[in-house]
Amino acid sequence: METTHRPIVVPAARAPAPGNEPGPPAEPLIKTEALALHYGQTQALKNISMEIRERMVTAFIGPSGCGKSTLLRCFNRMNDLIHNVRTTGQIRIAGQDINHADVDVIELRKRVGMVFQRSNPFPKSIYENIAYALRLHGTRARSRLADIVERSLRQAALWEEVKDRLHTSALSLSGGQQQRLCIARAIAIQPEILLMDEPASALDPIATARIEDLILDLKKEFTIVIVTHNMQQAARISDHTAFFYLGDLIEMNATSTIFTNPSMKQTEDYVTGRFG
């Protein structure tokens, strides 16, 4: 694996997130309790209780339709956009119930960023793709915007490739570059958590390797939850792995344990490729 281009000058340090002060082993950053989700009559998630640790990469694996993407989309409430979705149970992020009536979903999504399976840059310039959310959230000064755009692109290991054409269309980038732009766009607004829904599934192996390097790099700063179909990918990049099957969380543990010594037969069958 090639080394990623980590910026030499690390820009201004982030203010520590709430609940992130040094001290005794903190609460898990994300904690779900008896979480269930129905699409109309169909139950997509059953009684999910899990904990996701800060500044770790947590991978969700499981066969198609097992609910892993649905669960991911619970964490930034993207499921709100779908009609007929009913959620019960609790999701706490940094101790706060995110489905509580007082929660501002805009604020939640600023703090819980998302990268989608299909790269979806806006049909604007590379620069504008990143500046868009910054402007919405109140950053207007040009110099400050330019700084954050550069920092985000460097963090997403895209700066060197695009620094001379920031004002050309994002759609002129290759698939892998587009996906890294989407990552840059998501991290520009400094979320605490980055949700990634099969971010490399539409990419070739080289572009995939770059994204994986990037994820390993980003976990120093962000808590990453990634859905993947690719078991090697989960094994390579994640610290914890959760295996889902038909809406159930079958097993969650340290990635090495899941892949070498799972406690459930179903998990073993899946990770060894006997089904799924």
């Binding site: 993207m78 999504r109 989608f116 979806n120 806006f122 868009y132 959310a133 766009r185 998501a186």
Partner: peptide, 19 residues
């Protein structure tokens, strides 16, 4: 995907529609 991308960045529905 474009609408989702905007909403996931914390844009409101109105901002997404207008911008």
């Amino acid at each position: 995907g474009l609408r989702e991308a905007s909403l996931a960045l914390g844009a409101t529905k109105l901002e997404t529609i207008v911008m």
